[in-house]
Simulated assay, not measured.
Amino acid sequence: MKIIALYAGGPRITHTKTTELHSGISKQTTSRLQVTKETIQGDGVALTAYHGGPDRVVCFYSREHYGTWEAEYGKQMQAPGVGENLLTEGMLESDVCIGDVYQIGNTMLQVTQGRVPCDTISKYNEMPNLHLRFAETGWTGYFMRVLSEGEITLESRVTLLERNPNACSVLEANRIFFHEKKNADSMQRLLCSNGLAKVWQDRIEERLLEL
């Protein structure tokens, strides 16, 4: 597990060849992130319904996915293409579980949910329906809450400190959340994942009541 790049930046107007976006997706490279329990210094989001808040302070995405999307769409995808704060290697959605606690530098972070992809990802990268492919594959990236504040640098070591042996991987959690909306057993299993973001807990409980 290692950090490839760090990014931060607040919402701004970004122009593509076909549209104008007001979003926090367009972040700038940085050598360090100053992380608190509420935010990252110099970072911000536009759509607070899907990003930000204490359960979604830090966004991760895997470098391994970039090559897949580039091959599928036949064009280069420039990082940070999904507004991630950390571009990593060896931390795929299948490797990381809801509730995992990581030491990164002098911070302590906990995995809370997969990222919910919106069409801003497709528009920003000029790759039609990329956000739908994110949801189909489960390669969405994921969020972490901050348990212990501090600083993350490019040299920071990533160490898994704690994992519940019964926890859902982020890939499993994404499959349940996006595709198994009528599967009570799967949803109950995800609800039992310690550390799950409250917004996902609430949504799953609503779906269970609707069955």
Rank of each mutant, 00 (worst) to 15 (best):
N194I: 14
H65S: 05
K123I: 04
L171N: 04
V116E: 13
L86I: 15
G99Y: 03
I176P: 07
G44A: 01
M77N: 06
W69N: 02
L87C: 00
P165W: 09
G138K: 01
N125T: 03
I4S: 07
P80D: 13
I25N: 03
I204Q: 10
R133Q: 14
S156Q: 01
P117S: 08
A71D: 15
R157A: 15
A135E: 01
L161D: 02
L190A: 05
T107E: 04
V57Q: 01
T153D: 11
D185F: 09
M77A: 12
W139Y: 14
E93F: 10
R12G: 09
V116N: 13
V146F: 05
E149V: 07
K182I: 08
T88P: 00
K17I: 02
L154H: 09
Y73T: 09
T18S: 11
V116Y: 12
I121H: 03
W200P: 06
P165H: 11
F178R: 09
E162F: 14
Y61G: 05
W200R: 13
G141N: 04
R157H: 13
C192N: 15
L209T: 14
V158H: 04
Q28R: 15
I3W: 02
H65E: 10
G52Y: 04
L171K: 12
T159N: 11
Q78D: 13
R12M: 07
S148C: 08
Y102A: 04
G10W: 01
Q41H: 07
Q103K: 15
I152D: 08
C118Q: 00
G74M: 10
R32P: 00
M144W: 03
L92Y: 04
Q78I: 15
M144G: 02
S169A: 05
H15N: 13
G9M: 02
G138L: 08
Q78Y: 11
I4N: 00
I40A: 01
T112Q: 12
L92A: 13
Q103T: 10
K2C: 02
L21K: 09
G99L: 06
N194E: 14
C59Y: 15
Q201G: 05
G81S: 11
R56Q: 15
E70A: 08
I104N: 07
K182D: 12
I152E: 04
T140F: 05
H15P: 00
R207W: 15
Q188L: 13
M127P: 03
F143W: 14
V146T: 15
S156K: 12
G81Q: 10
G105V: 00
I121Y: 06
G99S: 08
S193R: 08
Y61F: 15
Q28N: 13
S169K: 06
L196V: 11
A135M: 02
C97W: 07
D202R: 12
G138V: 06
G9C: 05
A8G: 08
E20D: 03
A71N: 14
A5F: 01
S186R: 12
I40Y: 02
S62N: 14
E93G: 11
N106V: 07
